[in-house]
Amino acid sequence: MKSFTRGIKSGVAIGLGYLSVSFSFGILAVGFGFSWWQALLISMTTLTSAGQLAGINIMAASGGYIEMLISQITVNIRYSFMSVSLSQKTSDEFKGIKRWLLGFFMTDEIFAVASAQNEVDTKFFAGLSVMPYIGWSLGTLSGALLGNILPQSVMNALCLAIYGMFVAIIAPVAKKSLKLFAVIAFAVALSCAFYYIPFLSKNVPSGLAISICAVAAAVLGALLFPKSEEAENE
């Protein structure tokens, strides 16, 4: 059980971050004409930020089902890489039905925290998923029901929580490895190109841009600085 409670604790920061992000999703969904229970249901069954945002945009515009499917695949393809990546770190008992059930919780942040572990067992991963799931659901519900009840300054500050958490995951590893630092710098440079070059920012949806930048930088890293077996757990 120790592993489960350790997981819950590790998920607190993610849960807090999700609370604020999904709060804005709730507000947005109601603004698009969805009822509070629809917004909540979307969050509880889907558990992703960019994909849900793309999803309600398409629903509100009465877009096609195929369009919905294509947008979800491009925005979410990064999860497949994460799932394969984490499959290499799971303990021996974490397989079969457990993976089918817990695979649902493979969000960017849960994945990032889990992959910072040397080995991920079922209980830790399950515990890690608890607070983010509660935060994501509760945030959506409050956003949908309460709308803009928090002052804008507090909302603004909360919006950085999730990014602060990303920095907390990246920085300690990057300071120890110049190679990893270089790979990260390349990913950031590419990401800036997709953001600031008008042709790219207009034509490439942000979820897909993230996948492209991440894959390109990781390929470059694997080509230039392949990891040796022993060095991986450092």
């Binding site: 991440a214 930088a217 392949p226």
Partner: peptide, 22 residues
């Protein structure tokens, strides 16, 4: 190569999501 790719991917995903969006 695949192992190395999978080692780098979590960090490149997070970096690309954080900058410059944050």
């Amino acid at each position: 190569f695949v192992r190395s790719f999978l080692y780098y991917i979590p960090y490149t995903v997070l970096a690309a999501m954080t900058f410059p969006a944050a």
